[in-house]
């Protein structure tokens, strides 16, 4: 079994995404490139219609997970990504993603 560094924690990364071919590959590649082991990976429709949710559980240092999540968010088809040590944010995240989409559509319509 792989041992983890003192500074490493098991993080839950959640990405809210469009339904895009190859995106999962692209996101998992960000972890592989930094040698971050993915413990578990889940993909399913989110509470927002047409928006998908990718959850990845991986061991990482706080700095590495922060950078990886920024690179996930950089993907064109990713609306927003979060990382957490616990799983309490779910409802708050959904509200926040709805707000992001509302603001972007409002910006476009201006």
């Amino acid at each position: 079994m792989k041992t983890h560094g003192e500074n490493e924690n098991l993080y839950e990364v959640t990405a809210y995404t469009e339904d895009s071919l190859g995106l999962l590959y692209s996101i998992s590649g960000i972890f592989a490139r930094r040698s971050l082991d993915i413990e578990k990976l889940l993909c399913y429709p989110s509470a927002i219609e047409g928006v998908f949710k990718i959850k990845i559980y991986a061991w990482a240092s706080p700095e590495l997970i922060r950078q990886a999540v920024l690179q996930i968010e950089k993907k064109v088809d990713v609306i927003k990504a979060y990382y957490e040590l616990d799983t309490q944010r779910s409802k708050k995240e959904v509200e926040e993603v709805k707000e992001i989409l509302r603001k972007r559509e409002e910006k476009e319509n201006k």
Binding site: L21, G22, D77
Partner: peptide, 14 residues
């Protein structure tokens, strides 16, 4: 090609 270019393109699409 989607797999090959995913990490080296800004966006790809089949």
């Amino acid at each position: 090609y989607i797999g090959l270019t995913a990490p080296i393109s800004k966006w790809n699409h089949q």
